[in-house]
């Protein structure tokens, strides 16, 4: 009796469970080829935004550095040719940063945002001090045609 229960009934039941999944779609995401979409408010690496005409939004007011609980932001101010205030030096130490988002909340100019990028591992400590140039958002996207022309030109 036990033999029937354990072998005849239980074994095929187990095999069936396994076989069932042979034809089901797997839930595994094949990272890095498929990436999960982050929530819209996900707090990843910082980026500094620009206005539509290309001017940097950051005026180096110091509020992000003041609100940072980890003291991860360093900045030095300077004057542009127009006489406006801007950040000559702006650095965030991403190893100190705890990605809380206080800097984004504190910014009065809507200049700093925490984006969706989370893939920035590296093999030495110094490269984690991200400078302003590394964090500045790109210029408005060029048209694809222009981009191809530019890339072709670079080859020659």
């Amino acid at each position: 009796m036990n033999f029937i229960r354990t072998v005849i009934i239980a074994l095929p039941k187990g095999f069936y469970t396994t076989l069932k999944h042979l034809f089901k779609k797997p839930v595994t995401r094949k990272y890095p080829y498929e990436r999960r979409e982050m929530a819209p408010r996900y707090r990843g690496k910082h980026y500094l935004e620009r206005y539509d005409d290309g001017t940097e939004r950051c005026v180096c007011c110091g509020l992000c550095a003041a609100s940072c609980p980890a003291d991860a932001i360093y900045m030095e101010g300077g004057e542009t040719d127009n006489g406006e205030r801007f950040a000559k030096v702006y650095e965030i130490n991403l190893l100190r940063c705890i990605f809380c988002g206080f800097c984004e909340e504190a910014c009065p100019e809507e200049a700093i945002f925490l984006g969706h990028e989370y893939e920035f591992s590296d093999d030495n400590r110094d490269s984690f001090i991200y400078t302003k140039e590394q964090m500045l958002a790109n210029r408005p996207k060029e048209k694809p045609f222009k981009r191809i022309i530019r890339k072709v030109r670079r080859i020659f």
């Binding site: 007011c61 110091g62 550095a65 003041a66 030095e76 101010g77 004057e79 205030r85």
Partner: peptide, 9 residues
């Protein structure tokens, strides 16, 4: 002092 640094620093 213009634009150099914030006083609390």
């Amino acid at each position: 002092w213009r634009y150099n640094i914030r006083v609390w620093k």
